[in-house]
């Protein structure tokens, strides 16, 4: 079974130390973020059980949380996940066209992953970037003021990175 590296375990213990004794459950959400990053971009039942054992809580307490928060993936996703905002302010600035463009270009529907496992397309609700619309989240960062040309460039950039990282 996959386990955290010593470095990540240190990080986890550092987080637990932020809370009073016995309140280690508070570390659950941050630790699930680390687990998702470490173990392939999603949370398997095995991963969640592992997190439960580290925090000394019941597995069900982890499942409850993992299913509530939209940033946790409960099934595998592509290497690059395009999370395009579709709420009001982004919509009036053209997010529908951006979503259609990505669908056509990648040949997938919302929620799907390309056959090569490289890209997943998701729609999300307001990400707090309404003044820089239309926008999407890609990994840790936001891509803002999106245009079709920018989408082309982002896709090329991901494809290039995927080759150099392999």
């Amino acid at each position: 079974m996959a386990q955290f590296s010593a470095e990540k375990l240190n990080k986890v213990n550092e987080i637990i130390a932020r809370y009073p004794a016995g309140k280690q459950k508070s570390a659950l959400i941050p630790v699930l973020h680390i687990a998702q990053e470490e173990f392939g971009g999603w949370l398997s039942a095995e991963t969640m059980d592992y997190v439960a054992s580290i925090l000394k809580i019941e597995p069900i307490e982890v499942y409850e949380v993992a299913t509530f928060y939209s940033m946790y993936n409960l099934k595998p996703v592509g290497k690059y996940v395009f999370e395009v905002c579709q709420t009001g302010p982004c919509m009036i600035n053209g997010s529908d066209d951006i979503i259609d463009y990505i669908k056509n270009k990648l040949g997938i529907k919302v929620g799907e992953t390309t056959a090569d496992g490289l890209f997943t397309l998701k729609t999300v609700e307001c990400l707090g970037a309404c003044g820089y619309a239309p926008m999407m989240q890609l990994g840790k960062h936001y891509r803002e003021h999106l245009t079709k040309e920018k989408i082309d460039a982002i896709i090329e950039e991901c494809e290039r990175n995927a080759v150099t990282n392999n």
């Binding site: 973020h33 509530f68 999300v124």
Partner: peptide, 9 residues
């Protein structure tokens, strides 16, 4: 300390 949420308005 900074605590990150996980996507829930």
């Amino acid at each position: 300390y900074v605590q990150r949420g996980a996507g829930a308005y």
